[in-house]
């Protein structure tokens, strides 16, 4: 059933985007080098999995502008534009534990 639904979606423009969105958008795979996927890792860096995308976007834009104090995230956020940040936040938000 899922496959049928997906095939139907593939016929549309949204479907083409969807097919590509199955894999992480550019940059997202690197985040989990510091932001643990696993719940059991003890680290001060917050997990991104399942987090509300709007919160991640707000944090990244504040890091990027310098409005939010940071140790390292200001330097990393500056490497992404708003669309790229939104795509990464949406992807992590969509992942389930």
């Amino acid at each position: 059933m899922i496959r049928a639904a997906l095939s139907a979606l593939l016929l549309t423009g949204a479907g083409a985007a969807l097919a590509q969105s199955a894999e992480a958008p550019p940059g997202a795979a690197a985040c989990s080098g510091c932001h643990a996927i696993s719940k059991s890792v003890e680290t001060p860096a917050p997990r991104l999995l399942g987090r509300e995308p709007a919160d991640v976007v707000a944090a990244m834009l504040a890091f990027k502008s310098g409005a939010r104090p940071a140790t390292i995230m200001d330097r990393i956020a500056k490497g992404f534009n708003e669309d790229e940040i939104r795509a990464i936040a949406a992807w992590y938000g969509a992942q389930k534990d």
Binding site: L9, S21, A22, I37, A90, W91, A94, Q95, K96
Partner: peptide
């Protein structure tokens, strides 16, 4: 695309497992 992502995530059901689609 974001809505689709959410849907896909739910359908796939497992963390970071991309459905065997494309």
């Amino acid at each position: 695309r974001r809505d689709a992502l959410k849907w896909l995530g739910g359908a796939a059901g497992s963390a970071l497992a991309a459905p065997a689609l494309a």
